[in-house]
Structure formats: C-alpha cells, structure tokens
Nucleic acid binder design. Structure first.
Lengths: 339, 339
DNA sequence: CTGAAAGCGCTTACAG
DNA sequence: CTGAAAGCGCTTACAG
C-alpha cells in the first residue's frame, strides 16, 4: 500500500502516469523509454515497456498533438456522392497515409461550397497537417475561401488559382496513348465516341484522340469526334448509325466504359467481331463494365489511386507544395479488344 | 504599446489567449463568451466574438478533447477495397456524423485482421468516441481482439460474439419482399438465379425467394434456387439453358444485378420481352447496371446508407449499444421490369 | 541515466 | 458578470 500503482478507474484509458507508476519511474523517463529517442537504461526501458503492455497503454495523441508539432493527420473533403472517382483517390490517399502511420479525417461536401468551407474549418480545428480537396469533375473550381496555416492540395478538380497546387488526370494524354496503341496495331479508320460536348473530360479525351490520329496523318471517321453523352445508349445507337450509314471503320475509342459497353453490344448485335472487325477501347477501367463481364474489353485506367498517393505525398512532405496543375497520365489495361 | 494584442507569429493559429487579448478580457471570459453556455455580459460577448472573427480564430479541438470529454469523432475501419458496399455505408455514416458536427477518421484494413487491429489502436490513440468496423461480406467475423473503453459496432459483417453489436442487411427478408412483389403481380413460375452456393448472401437471398414462393403455395422452377456465381455470364447462360430445356417461367429473381444484367441480355437475344413475357428483378440496385443502361430493370436496394446511419446513431448515442445482430431490410426500386 | 518543471490550448469549478 | 488557478496527458529542455 502507499506507493502502489493506483487502481485505474474502471472505464478510463490508462495514462503515462499510470505506466510510470507501475514501472516505478518518473513520467519523463517513461515518456523517453516509450519514445525510444533518448538515452534510457536498458533495464528501465524494459520495465516501462512491460508496464505499458500490461496496462494496454495507448498514448493520447491529442496531448501529443497539442504540443505544437504535427498531428500526423490530413483532412480529405470529397465532393463526390457516388464515389465513382473519389473512392479510388481516397483509397490511394489513405494507403499513402497509413504507410506513414498517419490518419485520414474524412468529410463529404456533397458538392456544396458552403458545406465544404464548414468542413474545412472543422478539420482545421482538429489541427490536421493538410487538406485534400477531392472534386468529381475535371473542371477548374474556385479556390477554398479560407486562410490556412497548413497546405491545401486539390485533386481531380483543379483550383482556378494557379498559385494553388492541384493534381489532375491528363485526359488528353491518356486518350492519345490509347489511340496511338490502336494505330500501332494497324488501325486506320478510327471513330471517337465521346461524352457530352460541354464536359471538359469528354473534350480532352476527344482532342487527345484527334491529335494522335493527326500525328499519324489520319483524320477521324466522321471528320471529328462524335460527342453525345456518357451512357450505354449513346454507344449502342452510334454504332448502329455508323453501320447504317455504311461508314467504314476499324477502331472505336470510347469516351468512357459505358459508351464502350453499348458499342460492344451493338457490334455483337450486328455480327461484327472485336477485335477482328473492329478494335475497341474504353475509358475509366471500371471493372463492372469492362472486366467482370461476358465480353471484357480494354480500357484506359486513369490511375486515380496513384493520383491520391501523389497528392498525399506532396501534402505531407515538409515545405510548401509546388504550385500549379500537375497532370498524371493513365495507362492502358489490355483485355484483348485491341488486337 | 505594452498592452497591445501581441503580433501573432506569421504561420501559427491564433489561440484563445490571442482572442482574449484582442477583446481585452481574460481567457476564461473569452472561453465562456465563445461557448455560449455561461452568463457573460452582452457587450463583452460581442467584443469577444468580433475579436475571434477578426483573427479567424479556430478553437483547437485537440485541447478540448484533452479535457477528458468526448472528441466528437468516430473511427471507421473498412475492409473493402472495392468500396462496392462499404462506400454507401461510409457515406451514410459520415452524413449522420456531420449532422452532429462530428468527424469521421477513416482507415482501410484491406481485409487484413492484423492491420485492422493496428488501425483500431491508432484510432483509439486519437481518442475517438467509438469504432465502426465495416465488413464486405455478410459472413460473421471474429470480434476485434482489443479491450476498448469506447463502444464498437460491426456493420455488414456481424461479429461472431453475440455480446457485440452488429448491423447487417436482411438478405432473406429482402428477397422475400421481391418475390412477394412478383407473386402479387401475378407471376407463378419463378426462377431464382443465385450467386455462389458457399456465399451466405447468396444463400439467404435464395432462401428468401424460396420461402416467399412456398408461402404462396408455389415451388420454384427447377425445384430449388439455381446457384452459380455473381457474374453476368451466369445469368446469360442460365437463361439460355432454361429456354433450351423448354422450361416455362414467367419471373426471374436474380441474386445480384450482374446476374440480372446477363439474364436481361439473354432474354433480349432470345426475343423475349421484359416484363411482358418474363418479369425480372435484380439485387443491389447498382445504377451502372440497372438504371444507367439501355434497358433499366427493377432491383432490391439494400439501403446501405441507412445501415451506416443506423450504426452511427447507435454508436454516438450515450450508453452501451444494444447487443446482438440488428437486421435491416431492403426496399424495391421499381423500373418497370416487374409489371 | 533520471526527474522536476514548464508548457501546449483549452474548460471548469471556485472566488470575488 | 469576471478572472485566477488548476488540470487534461503528454514532451522537452534543463539540472542533477
């Protein structure tokens, strides 16, 4: 009795003081033994470690964070309800963080700038070391209207302010890559079935296709990319139209996998073989459409996971992030629909 | 000079002391004015509020959390890489949290129990008020091997320990609902195209279908649910087989939307109309398969968002959560493929 | 190698 | 209505 370790109250986390008492050392020494960054006698260190283990000691990171240093956490605000694009980005980011023993604080702004601002403030109140703003379209967005002492990085949707740091997909370069691949496989009569003419992603992908064709001295069938919408039906009806109008074509670059899927179905319905008669490539590499299906097809993977990782790297690396828009190119996942 | 508000260092968050100094009051009074929970003179309150606004004061929640109360945050550990099921659950959870001015700390265990444990400890070190463990299959899982002072709730994959609290989808009840709907629409010759015979989700969905049919005095075509896998090809080939073997059927209950999609395609290929000749319903309500397509079809929505909300409610409600497995039923989203 | 003390930024009894 | 003081759980110079 007397100098005994105090009985910890039933539902309370043990503190460093409890560990120190159990090990018969001062709090300072216990702290040093645990941190492994100061000279502590080996036997003392062992005693402290055992005591900590015994008590299931879990250091209070709030206290540590309060000491002024970094909290080893970043806040991610996603604007995407569907998660179609943001999920892989988030997972990449989380993976990069976890490898660093850091944590992600997640919020969903639901595309609402007011809510985004509110969440940003809340995350900053928790003293995150940085903020990742994940958009759901490639259109540049207004910057966060908030002074922050920690860095902010925009992902997928870049900030309109060139002084900010943004990471985005290079849709044009990726489409070029896909088209070059088709041309490399001997295709000459290429059609681009694009998304909506107002969508920047659709425009960039169409332009990338056109540029790659032009570089090979080719003009797209129809004279220009055919812009429509993002749905299967557009791919389906476009192929029927092309065939009905007796267009000759041997390759289809589709603006996304849904269009590609519609096109695949139409080609099958008309008795054409892929890639025998027509080569085809989609965009987004969404497995439910291009991999996990009756007739898999090749697709451009935008490497969203890598985008998230890259953004986090930049965010948690000490020093101000490099300003400007960083574009990351995708890569082709081949499933035999090209050649 | 002298009693002037100190010039805040360039890259540092203002503290309550800064606000108090700017407003010419003590820290205690500034705190009370901001918290709005104590008697403070109206004019004083206004001065403090203005000072806080002026300095863009953002209270340090780490400090507040350190005072021993709750941190207004929960940790979510998801085991699902794909996010197919966990994303809607997470979004539901996040929504329920945000409405409460709380924050989500997110980790991904990638289905690895060791990593899960590690992440749980890390989150607990950040003193979250509770832990949500989101699985990716309905199979019961071993409980987290960790003593926690805060509540733990399992979602989607229940804990094997009945003393734990779990929230899961009621696959059987949902399949019953779907089948009853078909029967209500006058269908009598029902086929169930199920997932893998080893999958609990597939088994429950099949059993729910069988029970609903039996309750109406019907036996499933083929005598029992047909179990296969989760892919389109299985739906596609099953329908061809049924027709080749001259089975008579007027309704298809599919174990998921991919099977349903394959079945839809086969029915079309064989010249049958939906729902004219055959009614069809899928499972999961995955819009890329059942809504956003050439021929939309009805599907069971498992209300994963609601599952996430319910779990969070339980988690953040003071008092120990009710032990046991709470089952939530889905609902039918009709797109005209039933009648 | 060890420990007493100050301090991170707040909140909350407790006096006045 | 206001403020001085203690304290939440840690870390880090600073003495010894």
């Amino acid at each position: 009795m007397g100098a005994q370790p105090s009985d910890t109250a039933p539902h309370k986390n043990p503190t460093l003081a409890d560990v120190a008492a159990a090990a018969g050392v001062s709090i300072a020494t216990a702290s040093k033994a645990l941190s492994n960054r100061y000279d502590v006698a080996e036997t003392t260190k062992v005693r402290v470690l055992e005591a900590a283990e015994e008590l299931s000691f879990s250091p209070n990171l709030l206290a540590r964070g309060l000491l002024g240093g970094r909290t080893q956490s970043v806040g991610i605000i996603t604007s995407d309800l569907e998660g179609r694009f943001s999920l892989p980005i988030m997972m990449g980011a989380e993976g990069a963080m976890a490898a660093d023993r850091s944590t992600v604080l997640l919020s969903n702004s639901r595309g609402n700038p007011e809510l985004e601002l509110q969440h940003a403030k809340a995350l900053l109140s928790r003293r995150v070391d940085g903020l990742l703003l994940v958009g759901d379209t490639p259109e540049p967005r207004p910057p966060l209207r908030l002074q922050t002492v920690v860095p902010v990085v925009y992902v997928y949707a870049p900030s309109q302010d060139p002084a900010d740091t943004s990471f985005v997909c290079d849709n044009a370069a990726s489409a070029k890559l896909a088209t070059e691949r088709l041309i490399g496989a001997g295709r000459r009569a290429i059609v681009h079935l694009g998304g909506p003419a107002q969508s920047l992603a659709a425009i960039d992908r169409a332009e990338g296709t056109r540029l790659a064709a032009a570089a090979a001295g080719l003009e797209l069938i129809g004279g220009a990319p055919a812009m429509g919408d993002w749905h299967e039906t557009w791919g389906w009806s476009s192929v029927h139209r092309l065939l009905d109008e007796a267009n000759e074509f041997d390759a289809l670059v589709c603006g996304n996998d849904q269009i590609a899927r519609g096109a695949m179905d139409a080609l099958e319905a008309r008795g054409l073989r892929v890639p025998g008669d027509v080569a085809l490539i989609g965009f987004d590499n969404w497995s439910v459409l291009c991999a996990d299906v009756r007739r898999p097809f090749s697709s451009v993977d935008l490497n969203l996971d890598g985008l998230g990782r890259a953004a986090i790297q930049t965010l948690i690396t000490p020093g101000a992030p490099v300003a400007g828009i960083h574009k990351l190119s995708g890569l082709i996942v081949d499933r035999g629909s090209i050649e």
